[in-house]
Amino acid sequence: MLIHTGEKPHKCAHCGKAFTCSPQLKIHMLIHTGEKHHKCAQCGKAFSDNSNFRRHMRIHYGEKSHKCAQCGKAFSQFSDLKKHILIHTGVKPLKCAQCGKAFSCVSHLKRHMLIHTGEKPHKCAQCGKSFKRTSHLKTHMRIHTGEKPYACVECGKTYTRSSGLKCHQRLHSEEKAT
């Protein structure tokens, strides 16, 4: 009945966000406590709730059930498909206040704004080097951890970056061609 009435009696004491049932509130509370019980065994990324963890696991399993009707490109998350569709429509409703450049989604605009501010908010705890993007920090961390997640299926050689693996795989292609 709460769904029909819109009533949300379970309220977060930290931020005031309200929920229809207590399990939703318990999951939400993990945001404030920082607890992340669901850890990916493949990449180490941790999540506070199971639904985000399952969504993340699609990346590793290669499951891409959301397909673009226009070009056939598939995505593991529906939100990524929605962003992709804007490529076909050409709609870019968000504009940079400083230079007027237009973007199709908020995350791209925020990333662009770092050009104007020069800010590098993602800092390596080990060496202090800073990065504009989380993904760049994550790749950098492999220097410290020694992680090499990209492996050649033909010879087993491993790389810290996908670009290194792609370059290496071209060598195998050239060997086969000769």
Results as ranks from 00 to 15, higher is better:
residue 116 H to W: 02
residue 159 Y to D: 06
residue 86 L to R: 14
residue 83 K to P: 01
residue 135 S to I: 02
residue 111 R to G: 09
residue 138 K to S: 15
residue 106 V to C: 02
residue 88 H to R: 05
residue 103 F to G: 05
residue 123 K to W: 09
residue 141 M to K: 11
residue 104 S to C: 05
residue 131 F to Y: 13
residue 121 P to K: 12
residue 161 R to G: 02
residue 141 M to L: 15
residue 115 I to G: 08
residue 114 L to C: 10
residue 100 G to R: 13
residue 111 R to P: 02
residue 149 P to N: 05
residue 99 C to N: 06
residue 107 S to I: 01
residue 147 E to D: 12
residue 144 H to I: 05
residue 125 A to Q: 14
residue 126 Q to R: 15
residue 158 T to C: 12
residue 141 M to Y: 07
residue 155 C to Q: 03
residue 162 S to L: 10
residue 90 G to S: 05
residue 148 K to A: 03
residue 91 V to L: 06
residue 116 H to N: 01
residue 132 K to L: 00
residue 123 K to Q: 14
residue 124 C to A: 14
residue 102 A to W: 07
residue 98 Q to T: 00
residue 148 K to S: 02
residue 137 L to H: 11
residue 92 K to I: 03
residue 123 K to S: 13
residue 127 C to N: 05
residue 156 G to D: 10
residue 126 Q to Y: 15
residue 82 K to V: 08
residue 91 V to K: 15
residue 153 V to D: 15
residue 91 V to R: 11
residue 115 I to F: 06
residue 124 C to G: 11
residue 136 H to Q: 12
residue 85 I to N: 03
residue 144 H to Y: 07
residue 152 C to F: 02
residue 123 K to F: 04
residue 87 I to G: 05
residue 118 G to H: 04
residue 159 Y to S: 09
residue 145 T to L: 13
residue 102 A to Y: 07
residue 152 C to N: 03
residue 161 R to C: 10
residue 89 T to S: 14
residue 126 Q to I: 15
residue 141 M to D: 07
residue 104 S to I: 10
residue 87 I to T: 07
residue 104 S to Y: 01
residue 107 S to D: 06
residue 149 P to M: 03
residue 80 D to T: 15
residue 103 F to V: 09
residue 133 R to H: 07
residue 87 I to D: 08
residue 81 L to N: 00
residue 86 L to F: 00
residue 100 G to L: 09
residue 152 C to S: 08
residue 92 K to F: 06
residue 129 K to Q: 13
residue 116 H to G: 02
residue 140 H to K: 07
residue 107 S to C: 06
residue 97 A to F: 10
residue 99 C to S: 08
residue 122 H to T: 12
residue 155 C to M: 09
residue 151 A to L: 12
residue 109 L to K: 02
residue 138 K to C: 11
residue 80 D to A: 14
residue 134 T to V: 11
residue 84 H to R: 03
residue 139 T to R: 08
residue 87 I to M: 12
residue 145 T to M: 10
residue 114 L to R: 11
residue 128 G to N: 06
residue 150 Y to N: 02
residue 87 I to S: 08
residue 125 A to E: 14
residue 118 G to W: 08
residue 132 K to M: 06
residue 134 T to F: 13
residue 136 H to A: 14
residue 101 K to I: 13
residue 124 C to L: 13
residue 105 C to I: 00
residue 148 K to T: 04
residue 153 V to G: 12
residue 81 L to F: 04
residue 151 A to W: 03
residue 141 M to V: 06
residue 124 C to H: 11
residue 146 G to T: 12
residue 160 T to D: 12
residue 155 C to N: 06
residue 126 Q to W: 15
residue 97 A to R: 11
residue 100 G to E: 12
residue 91 V to Q: 15
residue 144 H to V: 08
residue 129 K to L: 12
